[in-house]
């Protein structure tokens, strides 16, 4: 895995003092970070720590209460439509239509990102070839094994070659082997210069990231390379790092 130099490459996500408040409750409390191009950035935190809220502000679904932010070079307040064109998104687990075929899913999701007929044919076929799913092209997604569904879902999320792909707990409830295969696909995407922003609460997955941030009660309590964090916290694994931070949490899970 190549080390990323944050100084020379302009960040593809930059956030400063980002806050989201619901009434008196600060779901996200003054967070600041940068993500470099081609980086795999792990966004960690317990349930209810504010990961999903923070991500929703980055992908243009929710407006922040205060703070600044740019995603793919566009402002998260005023240019959400442009942000949407330049990112890919995969929600918790896979979100494909089970009653549509593999090809119909590709065509539909490609279509909503404005791919033309030719682009669809070209990129869609390349996707099918890469996944080795040629024979399954006309099968309903419901009939595919879990691992394939997930790979397909990820491939579709990056079909329009976005600058950044946001993955919201993409491996929830999936077995370790499938998770491992899934991370191989994430590396391939990063090699193609697609920045990966991934939330997870599997600490073994945190080790796969270039850098991770750990959120506790709406704040980012730690942000560095996994190896550095282990060293700083004098821990053997990311799990221990996380536990020592999460112990401070006062919020209960949502």
């Amino acid at each position: 895995m190549s080390e990323v130099d944050n100084k020379t490459i302009p960040p593809v996500i930059s956030v400063e003092g980002l806050t989201k408040q619901f009434g008196n409750f600060k779901a996200v409390d003054d967070i600041t970070f940068d993500v470099a191009k081609g980086e795999i950035f792990g966004f960690l935190g317990a349930n209810g720590a504010g990961k999903t809220t923070a991500m929703k502000m980055l992908i243009g679904i929710w407006k922040p209460t205060s703070g600044e932010g740019k995603v793919a070079g566009y402002d998260i307040y005023s240019e959400t439509e442009k942000i949407k064109r330049n990112i890919g998104y995969m929600s918790q687990r896979f979100s494909l239509y089970e009653d549509l075929t593999v090809w119909e899913n590709i065509r539909f999701f490609g279509g909503i990102y404005g791919l033309t007929r030719e682009e669809l044919r070209e990129k869609g076929s390349a996707l099918i070839d890469r996944l080795g799913m040629g024979e399954k092209k006309g099968s309903l997604v419901a009939s595919l094994p879990l691992g394939w569904k997930q790979k397909l879902s990820f491939s579709i999320a990056i079909l329009h070659t976005p600058q950044i792909v946001f993955l919201d707990e993409p491996t929830g409830g999936v077995d370790p082997i499938t998770r491992r295969q899934f991370w191989e696909m994430i590396y391939e995407a990063a090699d193609r210069d697609i920045t990966v922003f991934v939330t997870t609460h599997y600490m073994d997955e945190a080790e796969y990231c270039n850098r991770v941030s750990i959120m506790v009660d709406g704040r980012i309590e730690a942000l560095d390379k996994p190896a550095q964090l282990r060293k700083d916290f004098n821990a053997e694994s990311m799990d221990q790092v996380f536990t020592s931070l999460a112990r401070k949490a006062t919020r209960s899970a949502d």
């Binding site: 992908i59 243009g60 679904i61 439509e81 949407k84 064109r85 990112i87 998104y89 995969m90 929600s91 979100s95 999701f109 909503i112 990102y113 404005g114 999320a157 946001f166």
Partner: peptide, 8 residues
């Protein structure tokens, strides 16, 4: 969610 995140 995927639809809402898309530019559609």
């Amino acid at each position: 969610e995927v639809l809402l995140v898309s530019p559609m």
